[in-house]
Amino acid sequence: MNKKVYVLAIAAFVVGTVELILGGILDLIATDLHLSYAKAGYLISIFSLVYAISAPILLNVTARFERKKVYLCTLVVFLMSNLISAFSVNFYMLMAGRALGAATGSLIFVLSLTLAARIVEPQYKGRAVGIITMGGSASLILGVPLGIFVGNMAGWREVFIFIAILTALVIVAISIAMDRVQPIPVVPLKKQLSALWNPRMLAIHATTLLVLAGHLTLYAYFTPFLQATIGASSTMVTFIYVMFGIAAVAGGGIGGLLSDRLHPAKAIIIVLVPFMITMALIPVSVGLPLIAFLLLLSIWSALSWTVTPVQNSLIIKTSPETADTLISTNSGIAHAGIALGTYIGGMVIDHSAIQHTGWVGSILILLGLVTAIYAITRKEHSARAVA
């Protein structure tokens, strides 16, 4: 397989770090800029919102241009966004930096996925997509903890300077390692919209929304869940997050392998069924021996990150002509699912108990399984009709 995929994965790692880091340094930002935690939290919300809507728009705007040039230009603006964040003098300047970082970061991640799929042999497409996903998930166990360490040692501004330096290194690596990649002939917007509004593709996107919402119903409140159910100390919570991140990286790779060895339509069912069951078991597993509980959490983490490469491979397989646009819209839907799951989890905690978030999340994943089956069935019917 083309080793240049790993360079693209490093870019995905940097974007993932920017997206996930703020929760770990929010207290530092709030104190320095004299913000309430609620107002500082808007910096997370604005990132998810801009990320969700930017990629399809930017992908369409840049569709006619050579892809390496687009990639490098986007990385340069992404670097600038982190410098704006680092030298922000007030909340609104920092919000502008975050918004610019979200817009360019979303395009970088989608370009990483689509370029990885284009520069490898057909039999390695799923694995290439999985490696990019692993790059994003690696930020959980490397980028975010390192960023928090830098923030606590030097300050939150230095975190963004650190990310800008990493981005500069990625720009150099891409400039040297990547060849020019000509754009795919532009697909008319009407055809792009018809591909998106196809019932099968809508079902695939609905699966992404529901599965991510189900996962975040518990994961968004993972720390208080661990504290309330097993009385986890701060050290134990840190250890579990590291373990979770390692499992997530493995899950991204597994998803790519499954997509290569099986049709993505089969792979998504193989992933979602145990994912749903595992999440439903978590609330009742807190009374088990700790090693058994941690093993279950590892399986849950791995499966949660296996979904994305399988879904993206399914999109590429289903609609190769409009895959760039559809992967970007699917990425936006995933962020909408993150927001939805966080809201639902909060509602569960307010009106019930935090232990119930796992069960509610598993119900959402079950609904995602139903939409996935619908999408697969529609595909099989279409194939028979053509035959």
Rank of each mutant, 00 (worst) to 15 (best):
L216K: 00
M178F: 06
L218E: 09
R157N: 11
A206N: 05
I230Y: 03
F222Y: 13
I184Q: 10
I254W: 00
V187R: 04
A250C: 13
A173H: 06
L210V: 03
A173R: 05
M243R: 00
L146F: 14
I165N: 06
A206V: 07
I240L: 13
L166E: 07
T207S: 14
G231V: 02
R157E: 12
Y221Q: 10
A154D: 00
L189G: 00
P145G: 06
I161Q: 10
I163K: 08
G252N: 06
T238F: 06
V172R: 01
N198V: 00
A173W: 13
R200Y: 01
A232G: 03
T208S: 15
T235P: 07
I174P: 12
L216I: 02
L193V: 05
M201T: 14
I246Y: 07
T217C: 15
I204L: 08
V249L: 13
Q227C: 01
S233L: 06
I246S: 14
Q192M: 04
T238G: 15
S175I: 02
I161T: 06
V237P: 13
I254H: 00
L212S: 08
L193I: 04
S194H: 01
I163G: 11
F225H: 08
P199T: 04
L218D: 03
A250M: 10
Y241R: 11
K191C: 00
M236T: 15
R200S: 07
L146Y: 09
T235Y: 07
F162R: 02
R157D: 11
K191I: 04
A213Y: 04
K190I: 09
F239Q: 11
M201Q: 10
G245V: 08
Q182E: 14
G214Y: 01
P185N: 03
V150H: 08
L146P: 12
V249E: 12
V186F: 03
I184Y: 05
L169T: 06
V170W: 03
A232Y: 05
L226C: 09
F244N: 11
L216R: 01
G252I: 07
T238C: 02
V186H: 07
A247K: 02
L202R: 09
A228L: 01
A206C: 12
G253Y: 10
T207Y: 07
S175Y: 12
T223K: 11
S233K: 03
M236Y: 04
G255S: 04
A203I: 08
I148Q: 12
W197M: 13
A247H: 03
V186G: 03
V186D: 10
V172H: 07
L210Y: 04
T238Y: 04
L146N: 11
V181C: 09
L189A: 05
P199E: 08
Q182G: 02
Q227T: 08
Q182V: 05
G253L: 12
V181Y: 01
S175D: 09
T207C: 15
F160I: 10
G147P: 15
V237S: 09
I148A: 13
T207F: 04
G231L: 02
Q227N: 04
V242I: 15
V170N: 11
W197L: 15
F244T: 11
S234Y: 05
